[in-house]
Simulated assay, not measured.
Amino acid sequence: MRENYNSLTFWENVISKNKTIRGHMFMQKPPTERSIYFHSLMFGDRNGINNIWGYFPNFQSIIGYIQYSFLQESFYRWIYGKERLVTKIPSLTVDKIIREGEKEKKINKDTAFNMRRDYEFVRSLWNLPSNRAEEELKKFVIDFNKKWMGDNREFIYFKIFWTAEELGEFVISSTLLTGTEEELEAKINMKIDEWKDICKCASTDPVKGEKFRKVLCKDLTEVF
């Protein structure tokens, strides 16, 4: 079945049917060789942190996720999370969320402009050849993270990995910035060498792929 990832209706249906974490909506099965991986953070001092590790079935699906789900959720939390606990994201377009935030004076014109520009940029990727779209998405993510690094009250972050092995190495390197190998091994319930092997084979070995999936969903992802 060919999914229409460039469709608001498609994503509204997927989100409404899946009560799981949004970034895990397509993680019922282990990754394949076409999968694209990501790490995202949404933080607000009134809403805690959403630290999500996951993957999507292909490049088109992750563009759709960013455009129709991630930007919707992260911008809504940015606009309204300063003053209250956000427990549910309304089924509104990104443009509608931005317009209402402006109207209610929750954000200024510069912030609204940046939000619209990010949304329009992601939307434009559908019109590009896949190889160029991939390069443009890499640039977008770098710019996005600089723009929304925020402060100690709130920030948004998104990173893409093209292989499970790349994600696995980042898990190790980012953990060792503030922790130890022993702490990481305790967190993922395995030795570092085993983790590296699982990541290397995640998209080709179903057994290791399932272990990889469970680590991302249960051990690395944190929402609190």
Rank of each mutant, 00 (worst) to 15 (best):
R132E: 15
N114R: 11
K147D: 03
Y37N: 07
E100L: 13
M27Q: 06
R22V: 00
L125T: 04
E100V: 10
W53P: 00
D110N: 05
N145I: 07
D151N: 15
Y5K: 05
H39T: 05
E134S: 09
I15P: 00
L8W: 10
V94W: 02
R132T: 11
V86N: 04
M42W: 03
G64R: 07
I66T: 09
Y119E: 08
R99Q: 11
L125F: 13
N47E: 04
F144R: 05
L137E: 07
N108R: 01
A112H: 01
I97K: 05
R34S: 15
K106S: 15
D110W: 01
S69Y: 08
T32W: 08
K106Y: 12
T87A: 06
I98P: 00
I107N: 04
E136N: 10
T20H: 00
F140D: 03
Y5V: 09
E120V: 01
D143R: 14
N18I: 00
T87M: 09
T32H: 07
F38L: 11
W148Q: 05
Y119T: 06
E120P: 00
W53A: 00
I52P: 00
I21Y: 03
I97V: 15
S40W: 03
N4P: 05
I66H: 05
M115D: 04
Y119H: 12
W11M: 11
Q28A: 08
W126F: 13
S74E: 15
M115E: 08
G64N: 13
N127K: 13
R99V: 02
W78L: 15
G48I: 00
D45P: 02
D95H: 12
E135W: 02
Y65H: 12
M42I: 12
P90H: 08
I21M: 02
R123D: 14
S40Y: 07
F113V: 00
